[in-house]
């Protein structure tokens, strides 16, 4: 459907339109590309984020410089970051994934650091008095009790990653962002609406899932707050 005026449509016509957009824009492929980039980026963000969180907790003097640095990365608009990475990583999925990772490390690292550092003293005292080594305290006490907070950080990272991966469409990374761009360039309202709604549904679903996990962890591990 072209043109810029919405007319009233019947259910059948809507389904037909969705089908048209889905096949012409290769939305199955796009969705898979999109989720692939999302999964890879999220995986490495969590890995790097938790590691940095643990490292700054172990060495608090590094905390300020590292978090200040990451903060600057956050302030830079994701579009700009993506563009800056082009000379280094070329175009396509590469820079998209790297940009997502860079953007998503901060919430995870910060929450990990805060969680590990702020476990209530009484649990640490009893663990120490029982004869746990520092390492055992980290794995058996600090980490489990920090899981809800870390999950919260990962939830934020989920939203950031979805955002950057969608942008990737602009730099030939494929994914649903590419379909969106097509719709805009072709001035095809149907494409924009269908793809936009679909991206929205995916994003809200993933955010909701991350939120549910966070909630479960809060109930299970969060009773100290």
């Amino acid at each position: 459907m072209k043109g810029d005026q919405l007319t009233t449509w019947s259910i059948n016509e809507i389904f037909a339109e969705i089908l048209r957009v889905w096949t012409t824009q290769l939305l199955t492929l796009r969705t898979l590309e999109h989720l692939y980039m999302f999964a890879v980026a999220l995986f490495f963000s969590v890995l790097a984020g938790v590691l940095i969180g643990v490292l700054t907790y172990r060495n608090p003097r590094f905390a300020d410089p590292i978090f200040n640095g990451l903060n600057i990365v956050e302030t830079i608009p994701d579009v700009a970051l993506l563009v800056l990475l082009l000379p280094v990583f070329g175009i396509g999925k590469g820079p998209t994934i790297v940009a997502s990772i860079l953007y998503s490390i901060l919430p995870i690292a910060r929450n990990t650091y805060t969680g590990l550092s702020n476990v209530p003293g009484q649990y640490l005292e009893i663990a120490e008095a029982m004869g746990l080594t520092r390492r055992e305290i980290l794995f058996e006490v600090r980490f489990p009790l920090s899981l809800p907070l870390i999950a919260g950080g990962i939830r934020i990272a989920v939203v950031f990653t979805m955002g950057v991966v969608t942008l990737g469409g602009l730099i030939a990374a494929g994914g649903l962002g590419a379909a969106l761009q097509n719709g805009i360039q072709l001035y095809d309202m149907g494409t924009i609406l269908v793809t936009g709604t679909w991206v929205g549904i995916l994003a809200v679903f993933l955010d909701g899932a991350a939120g549910a996990i966070e909630h479960i962890l809060q109930v299970r591990y969060g009773k100290w707050s």
Partner: peptide
């Protein structure tokens, strides 16, 4: 939670 790009695009139609 919806990506900004999608929001911007959907404004058009």
């Amino acid at each position: 939670a919806v990506p900004s790009f999608a929001v911007v695009a959907v404004v058009v139609p």
